[in-house]
C-alpha cells in the first residue's frame, strides 16, 4: 500500500497536496463539491490587517498554458476572517489550515500574524512576501534579502506556529533570499508565487489587465518553479512547499523529486474544481507505476550524490 503521508514541521499530512492561497477561497465553494478533508491542508485567501477590495477589473487574462491575475489581495481583513470565515471553515475542514498573510509594512505583517497566532485551527502561517499585484508592499519584501529577513524575524517573534515564507520568482537570485529567510528563523519556504506577466488586447491595443501587469500562473511556469525548488533545496535545510502549475499526480512527484516536502495546487483548482481531489486519488496509482512506496522518501531525489 502506497504511503502518501508527509510531515511538515511536526504536523502529519495524509497527502502532500495543499490547495494554494487565492485559488481556494476559504474552502466553502469546494466543500459544496467534495469532502475537502481529503486535502493535506489548504492555504486560505491572502489576509491583510485591514479589509481590501483589491484592483479594478479586468483582473484576469488567459495565457498560453495558464493565466494572469491581478486580484490585488481582496479580503475582508484579519478581524473579519477570524470572526466570520474561520468559524464557518471549522464546519467543513477538520485539519490544521494554512493562514496566508500579506502586508504593507513589517509591523503590519507582525500585527496580523499575532492575531492569527491565537487561532487553534491554524497549523502554519504562510507569509506572502511576493504578491506582484499591490504597490508599496507584497513583492517589495520578497525581492530583497534584508527585507524578507526583517519580515521573517518580526513574524517569528509574535507567533509560536511554524512560519513559511512564500517567495517570489521575480528576483535575480532566489537562493540568497531563501537563505536570508532561513537565517531569520523561517520554518519552511513556499515557492514559487506567480511570475510577473502581461497580455495586450489586439482590438484595444492596451493591456487586458486593468492593473496592466499581473501574476502569471499555471502549467507554463512549472519548469521554472521546479528549477527554483531544486536550487533552494541545495541551499537550505528547512522544508520546501513546492508550487507552480501542478495539475497531476505526476507533477506532484516531479516537484517532490526536485526538493519539495509538500506541494500546493493553485490554478488547476480554478479550471477543474475537482483538481485536488483527482490528484490526491491518483497519487497511489502513479506512485506504484514509478516504484515509490513511501512519498516522504523521495523529497530531493533528483539531486545527485
Amino acid at each position: 500500500m502506497a504511503d502518501t503521508s508527509v510531515t511538515l514541521n511536526g504536523i502529519k499530512l495524509d497527502t502532500p497536496v495543499i490547495a494554494a492561497s487565492g485559488t481556494f477561497g476559504y474552502g466553502y465553494e469546494f466543500a459544496e463539491l467534495y469532502d475537502i478533508d481529503v486535502l493535506g491542508s489548504f492555504s486560505f485567501k491572502g489576509t491583510t490587517l485591514n479589509p481590501r477590495f483589491g484592483n479594478p477589473t479586468p483582473r484576469i487574462a488567459e495565457c498560453d498554458s495558464g493565466m494572469i491575475n491581478a486580484v490585488g489581495l481582496q479580503n475582508p481583513g484579519v478581524d473579519s476572517v477570524i470572526a466570520e470565515e474561520l468559524p464557518k471553515l471549522l464546519r467543513v475542514f477538520h485539519k490544521p489550515v494554512v493562514a496566508n498573510v500579506s502586508g504593507f509594512s513589517v509591523e503590519e505583517y507582525a500585527r496580523t500574524c499575532e492575531k492569527l497566532d491565537a487561532i487553534e485551527q491554524i497549523g502554519w502561517i504562510e507569509v506572502n512576501v511576493s504578491c506582484p499585484n499591490v504597490h508599496g508592499g507584497g513583492m517589495a519584501f520578497g525581492t530583497q534579502p534584508e527585507q524578507a529577513a526583517a519580515v521573517t524575524r518580526a513574524v517569528k517573534t509574535v507567533t509560536r506556529k511554524p512560519v513559511w515564507i512564500k517567495l517570489s520568482p521575480n528576483v535575480t537570485d532566489i537562493v540568497t533570499i531563501a537563505r536570508a529567510c532561513e537565517d531569520a528563523g523561517a520554518d519552511g519556504l513556499s515557492l514559487i508565487n506567480t511570475m510577473l506577466g502581461m497580455r495586450v488586447d489586439l482590438r484595444t491595443k492596451k493591456p487586458i489587465i486593468a492593473n496592466k501587469m499581473g501574476g502569471y500562473s499555471g502549467p507554463g511556469i512549472r519548469p521554472v518553479a521546479q528549477r527554483m525548488v531544486y536550487q533552494v533545496y541545495e541551499a537550505v535545510s528547512i522544508p520546501l512547499i513546492g508550487m507552480g502549475g501542478i495539475a497531476s499526480a505526476e507533477d506532484v512527484i516531479e516537484m517532490m523529486l526536485c526538493g519539495a516536502s509538500a506541494v500546493q495546487v493553485g490554478t488547476a483548482n480554478l479550471i477543474d474544481p475537482y483538481a485536488c481531489q483527482r490528484i490526491i486519488a491518483d497519487l497511489p496509482g502513479v506512485m506504484n507505476k514509478y516504484g515509490i512506496d513511501n512519498l516522504k522518501t523521495i523529497t530531493g531525489g533528483a539531486h545527485c550524490g
Binding site: 487565492g22 485559488t23 481556494f24 477561497g25 465553494e29 469546494f30 485567501k45 477590495f53 483589491g54 477589473t57 483582473r59 484576469i60 491575475n69 486580484v71 481582496q74 483548482n269 480554478l270 474544481p273
Partner: peptide, 8 residues
C-alpha cells in the same frame, strides 16, 4: 464559481 475573486 466564486474561488478566485477575479470578477469582483
Amino acid at each position: 464559481f466564486g474561488a478566485c475573486m477575479g470578477c469582483s
